[in-house]
Amino acid sequence: MFALNFLLRRIVQGIVIIGLVTLLIFTLLRVVPGDPVRIMLGPMVAPSVMEQVATELGLRDPIPVQFGRYMLQVMKGDLGHSFIRNAQGGSTGGSRGGETFDLQNRAKVSELIANTIPYSILLAALAILFTVLISFPLGFVAGVYSGKWPDRLSLYVSSVLVSLPNVWLGIVLILLLSAWGGILPAIGYNGPSYAILPALVLAIELAPVMIRSIAVSVANSLQENYVSVGEVRGIKRRRMITHHVLRNASIPLLNLFGIQVIGMLLGSLFVVEYIFNYPGVGLLMINAVFQRDFPIIQAIAMLSSAVLVCVNILVDLAATNIDRRLQY
């Protein structure tokens, strides 16, 4: 009963949030300067033709009308067509398109996303795996030996890692491991090994946050009264840590993971894909921004907020399952 009630409420809240995010991005795109029609049709086109195409596309209607129309379309499962990319893939430079602009020739946004998203999922999964492998041992040991040298060590390691800008780190790793070392491939995609280096960059960015949080929540959990009472009740410290401390420490960690880490991962995924020219959703998005390809930008913004909202719901559901107090 609780789970159903909770899920329903959170899903409704989530839909509202996704709607607000889409509205914000939708409005921003239309308010800030930069006319997509100019890029679509190229610089040689007469202003009258531009106005005609813009009107046909509905870009001259009031924003609420445009937004309403867009949301109706989305609810039917149609994310629209790209302004720039044609159905065969690749983008048509505006100059060739000329006056015969037909939206139906352009690629469907849903297909563009479907083609790129597997690469992004591979990269994200690998990044999470690396992050966990780096941060769990370091964070756990630091938390158990809070205030002692392992804690200090993990603190300095994470202070250094968090100070490495990902754009720079990416280039340096390409130089060291790919260009000079020849150990790992980089730039573009030609097999799963191309995901390793970008995933490593992402993991180095996410790990410090995780290391510190794991250390702090394990240390805080160890401070709880029931841990020391457990010893006098006759339960061994090792069992106390594996069965109780970790369980309790996981609740703040789940929250952190749901809100901060996934948010960071999504954002940085875009940047890292751009650095490595990795053909995922992020690269699609950044190119779309430069081409003012509104339907793609809107769809990806909506998608990423939907991912965040879903992860949040799952994480909260897991947390309430671990700690029943959260249900009350």
Partner: peptide, 24 residues
Amino acid sequence: MQQLRGREIAYIGSDPANALDPTL
């Protein structure tokens, strides 16, 4: 001592609310 605690020797404190793992 671990062998004795809980088996032969028991202790009850003044803070029962925080004496057990809150999540189980």
